[in-house]
Amino acid sequence: MATDTEQRSDHDLMLAVRHGELDALGELFERHHSRLFGFLAQLTGQPAVAEDLAQTVFQRMLKYRHTYRDDGRFTAWMYHLARRCAADHFRKTGAAPRATDPGVLDELADESPHAGHQAASRDDRALLQTALNQLDRDDREVLLLSRFEELSFAEIAHLLECSVGAAKVRAHRALGELRTVYFQLLKSR
């Protein structure tokens, strides 16, 4: 069974979910939940909210499984749902992302074998999130989407409803802005 699912692509697994094999979503969860959570946590600046949103994304995958298309790309669809969930959250709360308190990052379970080493860079992580929060929400979003190299710029452009060229320019400009803010914060520390 395990080897069977390992050989199936994300697309095949999602088609199986669409046809009623709901267990296939478990494999998709295992493959993508960390990245999805990372995207939402950095977009909202609130890890606890990001966990709820990530759960909602997978709930919507089940709810809207019949809308997944034969020619679809799973990751593009997943980030499409994630953006919608995040947009709903921002609309409801009217919230701008908050500067991340390093204590919040401490609360997250870090089960990796390099947890000790990562603890040393915890302040840097909080600093980067603070820099990220200072970007315009759209810039932050395009930057985080472009960080996932499994998404092509054509897919990012489709998600953002703009041209491929515009998506590239926006992502690269956002990276430049993040660099400026991040280094300013590093110097003022």
Binding site: E107, S112, R147
Partner: peptide, 11 residues
């Protein structure tokens, strides 16, 4: 730094 700053979800 952006890569490293991505937190991990809790269990």
């Amino acid at each position: 730094a952006l890569e490293e700053a991505a937190p991990l979800p809790s269990s």
